[in-house]
Design a protein around this nucleic acid. Structure first.
Lengths: 218, 218
DNA sequence: AATTATTTTTAGATTTGCCTAAAAATATAT
DNA sequence: ATATATTTTTAGGCAAATCTAAAAATAATT
């Protein structure tokens, strides 16, 4: 089936929102920066194409076919991000927008040749997992630094890539994926956290920051 | 100005058709595989945007702005073809369709970084010249093998990339860009040509073939 | 020059994806 | 439980890009 760019984008949004249960029309409209009535229109169409399970007033979820579309699109998006950063030397804060366009290029052969060219990467430049050609996602952290306890020794595995300014901030303080961290102290009045880095230096991170850094145990 | 994919494609078609004078609505419609009425609609819109000089019933030509759009799009198309062939190991007969999609990705920074990554190539895999970032085209051959005389010593510089089967045929007989050729004989009854190759072997080419091979003098 | 043929444009529909405004359904609060 | 607020859907429109069929303009022919 030949999907439009708009259809693919809605499916991606539903995929991402449905990590936390069924998706409401309003939430979807907000994620798509559009009006609820537009979302309703699209849900009807996606329902007719059997890409979503949609019942009026009951919210929506992806069908198996819809899920495959979502994962295929996410795979392409993240592979292109790897290309842009690793091969074209873009900064990790610059690639999201461009990948949003590249992900809609249709050729499946292109996707697979690109993956091979990049060495079949399993994670994108922000640490987000790249589905393989069968649509399987590598395991990845869902635990934020904000959820951890004082004394824990951690590795930064993934960062939220939703905000370029946040990524620029991380670049500024040279906080990179794979870095080992230890929580020195936590301040309950504002949930800020003091961490010790590999080189022994110490860093103070706000709650907003720690909620957008995903870690694994060292 | 933010142009749609359709607008960019019409502009490319007008550019390519206007190599041989002013472009008629019918020719444009045929090139775009659409109806004359659709072409008329688009010409009005492009006229309003000052990308073409369009007067009812008088045909159309590109304005300076339209010309810049055409060259920019051609630059992107041909750079992506180089990427697909040189980096992803696609065959030269497989890349046109994919590049038709990639050429519409908007980021100018992407184009320039891609060009740099590829070593600022001046010609695409079919020998077509790639406009530089200022929109200047490298010199390229406009003389077909079919126009040459017996005894001439030539170099194959460019091939018509319009037909994948033609490209596959050239691959089959291993006729590659840069190869030195000598015309041994020409047959006037069907305009076929016998050429001698570098390795001394001899090849018989039909008129259709020689009209789609562009050469320079050796 | 008048007729015929061809090309081009206009008029009116269709589809996709969006909008606003109003109506209907569901959720919340008193 | 009734009233109020919120969410969701419907109804009706708009713009882009296409189509068919008919009208208008231009070109070709006798």
């Amino acid at each position: 089936m030949e999907l439009s760019v708009a259809e693919e984008n809605y499916i991606k949004a539903i995929y991402s929102l449905s990590q936390s249960g069924k998706v409401s029309t309003n939430d979807l409209a907000q994620a798509m920066q559009t009006k609820a009535s537009s979302a309703t229109d699209m849900l009807k169409r996606l329902g007719e194409k059997a890409l979503v399970n949609y019942v009026k007033y009951q919210g929506v979820s992806l069908s198996d076919a819809g899920n495959r579309v979502a994962l295929k699109t996410i795979r392409k998006h993240r592979l292109w991000e790897v290309f842009l950063v690793n091969k074209l030397q873009f900064g990790w804060d610059e690639v999201h927008e461009i990948a949003e366009e590249l992900e809609h290029v249709r050729s499946a052969k292109l996707t697979e040749k690109l993956a091979e060219f990049l060495g079949d990467p399993r994670f994108d430049p922000h640490g987000d997992p790249i589905p393989n050609s069968a649509g399987e996602l590598p395991k990845h952290s869902v635990k934020t630094l904000g959820e951890c306890k004082t004394g824990e020794q951690l590795i930064l595995q993934r960062v939220n890539d939703g905000n370029p300014e946040f990524l620029q901030y991380l670049e500024r303080i040279a906080l990179h994926l794979g870095e080992k961290l230890k929580i020195k102290s936590q301040y309950t009045f504002d949930n800020s956290v003091e961490i010790e880095r590999q080189d022994g230096s110490v860093l103070m991170l706000s709650e907003t920051v720690t909620n957008n850094l995903y870690v694994i145990e060292q």
